[in-house]
Simulated assay, not measured.
Amino acid sequence: MPKVGMEPVRRKALTDAALRAIGQHGSLAVTMSEIARQAGVSPALAHHYFGSKEQLLVETIRELLRSLRRDAIEALGSAPTQRARLSAVIAVSFDTAQFAPETVAAWLAFYGEAQRSEETRRLLVVYARRLRSNLLSALKTLCPIDDAARIAEGTAAMIDGLYIRQSLQSAPISSKASVALVENHLDAQLKEFGA
């Protein structure tokens, strides 16, 4: 019988363990038992909280998205200018926690799963729309809307592309270097608008 009040703690431990296990495997080919063992709970308790591995994986993606959203809201709230807001979005994307090897591997595994799972695809579309919206919100004050949309798409694609390259681990790039590459891209795109 689960202890009263432990559910949120154990659910979080299980999503954290799922992220680690997926990152270590480099795929979603992990079992509920492996995840439960990493979380320090029994497989039965993991099934009690989530019902199935698929439900646990969906909750793990949701937890990643919630974490990214919290970090973005905090960073955007302290940005004094629209250009600083763009830098905040970029910095959050490559924050140490978001750009950790296990997290990057998990994101890539989730993208692969999105080809088969409508729920996973839906959640990743939410991420893509949120990233584009955050970029576009600042960009449209710095340049015409058509240019803002083009620059937002290019910047988002560059962020996602750097994640893919990081997941390959053949030539890992640091978080700081990734930020610098995207910032350089933005500076080049915004130069003609004097921003």
Score class of each variant (00 low, 15 high):
residue 106 A to P: 00
residue 80 P to G: 07
residue 99 F to Q: 08
residue 106 A to F: 02
residue 95 D to P: 03
residue 76 L to H: 11
residue 80 P to Q: 01
residue 68 L to P: 05
residue 81 T to G: 05
residue 93 S to V: 12
residue 103 T to R: 12
residue 82 Q to G: 03
residue 70 R to M: 09
residue 87 S to H: 11
residue 108 L to W: 13
residue 90 I to N: 07
residue 68 L to V: 10
residue 73 I to V: 14
residue 107 W to F: 04
residue 95 D to E: 11
residue 86 L to S: 08
residue 107 W to G: 01
residue 85 R to N: 07
residue 74 E to L: 04
residue 99 F to D: 08
residue 106 A to M: 01
residue 98 Q to K: 09
residue 80 P to I: 12
residue 104 V to L: 03
residue 105 A to Q: 02
residue 92 V to C: 10
residue 79 A to G: 09
residue 82 Q to W: 15
residue 98 Q to L: 14
residue 66 R to W: 04
residue 83 R to F: 15
residue 94 F to N: 10
residue 97 A to S: 15
residue 85 R to D: 08
residue 70 R to L: 12
residue 77 G to A: 05
residue 99 F to Y: 14
residue 72 A to C: 14
residue 80 P to H: 09
residue 95 D to K: 00
residue 68 L to N: 07
residue 75 A to L: 00
residue 96 T to E: 15
residue 80 P to W: 13
residue 105 A to Y: 02
residue 77 G to M: 02
residue 73 I to Y: 06
residue 80 P to E: 05
residue 78 S to G: 06
residue 106 A to R: 00
residue 68 L to K: 10
residue 86 L to F: 14
residue 85 R to A: 00
residue 75 A to K: 00
residue 91 A to V: 12
residue 74 E to D: 09
residue 88 A to S: 15
residue 101 P to S: 04
residue 77 G to E: 09
residue 87 S to D: 11
residue 70 R to Q: 09
residue 81 T to V: 12
residue 77 G to K: 04
residue 78 S to W: 01
residue 71 D to Q: 11
residue 90 I to E: 12
residue 105 A to W: 00
residue 100 A to G: 09
residue 103 T to I: 14
residue 73 I to A: 09
residue 107 W to S: 04
residue 107 W to V: 12
residue 85 R to C: 07
residue 67 S to I: 06
residue 109 A to W: 08
residue 67 S to V: 06
residue 72 A to Y: 09
residue 85 R to E: 10
residue 97 A to G: 13
residue 85 R to V: 00
residue 97 A to Y: 12
residue 72 A to E: 12
residue 66 R to H: 06
residue 106 A to E: 05
residue 81 T to N: 04
residue 66 R to I: 11
residue 99 F to K: 05
residue 94 F to L: 13
residue 102 E to G: 15
residue 103 T to H: 10
residue 107 W to N: 03
residue 82 Q to Y: 15
residue 69 R to T: 15
residue 73 I to D: 13
residue 70 R to A: 04
residue 80 P to D: 08
residue 93 S to R: 01
